[in-house]
């Protein structure tokens, strides 16, 4: 009996934790700093993890039960084409600044992570797992496989990068006085992939569209360029 209903309960756990997290986020909205730290992407996973540890269930079982959500993440990625299409007239005029920012941002994310880690004495395996950190999860896993990184570690690093970017990005923009939604969105998409894009859509539709663009382009160019950088550096 228990085995039969466990998957359903584990899927319900995600929805329940998210609803609770979303409610917390709503009531903290009036204070930007607190509400950033109470983003559902921070609180919901903590709630779920706590419950899983408490009732002693493996992550692999939870993951299996939540497979429908992983699948729908793919569908949602396809759906990003619609805001991109609707906002394209804003993007067309900015081809040159966008492309330059993209190439610089995507390479700087990799180079800064690798050099800081190298200074701190990380092993080559860790360095390789760190390299695809700013790319959307499925791309990062594909790259990690290609360059022989640790897939589980890479997945964790990618998600953590996204959450850090999504939480602190909007705060940074406030402090730096950056008010243009196009800049906010594109930077979130480049640095914090899908998680940042989810956050960008909360700011505005335009912000979300620029984030979708950043996410898609960063995934594509990193997937093409990174394997070559890694092969060249670690040979």
């Amino acid at each position: 009996m228990v085995e039969i209903i466990t998957p359903v309960l584990l899927l319900m756990l995600t929805f329940f934790a998210f609803s609770l997290a979303f409610w917390l986020y709503r009531i903290s909205k009036s204070r930007p700093i607190i509400s950033s730290l109470f983003h559902p992407l921070v609180t919901a996973p903590i709630l779920v993890s706590a419950v899983l540890l408490l009732i002693n269930i493996d992550y692999s079982d939870y993951r299996k039960a939540n497979q429908p959500l992983f699948f729908l993440l793919g569908t949602a990625t396809v759906a990003l084409a619609i805001p991109l299409h609707q906002q394209f007239h804003h993007i067309r005029n900015l081809t040159k600044p966008l492309l330059l920012t993209l190439v610089f941002g995507a390479s700087f994310a990799v180079i800064s992570a690798l050099s800081i880690a190298w200074v701190l004495g990380a092993t080559p395996e860790t360095l390789i797992s760190l390299a695809p950190k700013s790319v959307t999860t499925p791309v990062a896993l594909g790259i990690a496989e290609k360059i022989n990184g640790e897939p589980a570690l890479t997945a964790g690093i990618v998600v953590f990068t996204g959450v850090i970017g999504a939480i602190f990005g909007p705060l940074l923009f406030r402090w730096l006085g950056i008010s243009d939604d196009r800049i906010k969105g594109f930077v979130l998409g480049i640095c914090a992939h899908g998680v940042g894009t989810a956050r960008a859509f909360e700011i505005s539709g335009k912000c979300g569209a620029f984030s979708s663009l950043g996410l898609g382009l960063t995934g594509a160019i990193t997937a093409i360029i990174l394997p070559w950088i890694i092969i060249y550096t670690f040979r």
Binding site: T14, P40, F160
Partner: peptide, 22 residues
């Protein structure tokens, strides 16, 4: 598309949980 994107954060929750089990 609007519906999917509105709940994009929810879809990331299972992946984020994985981080704590690393």
């Amino acid at each position: 598309a609007h519906f999917m994107i509105r709940w994009l954060s929810l879809l990331f929750v299972p992946a984020c949980v994985g981080f704590f089990f690393l």
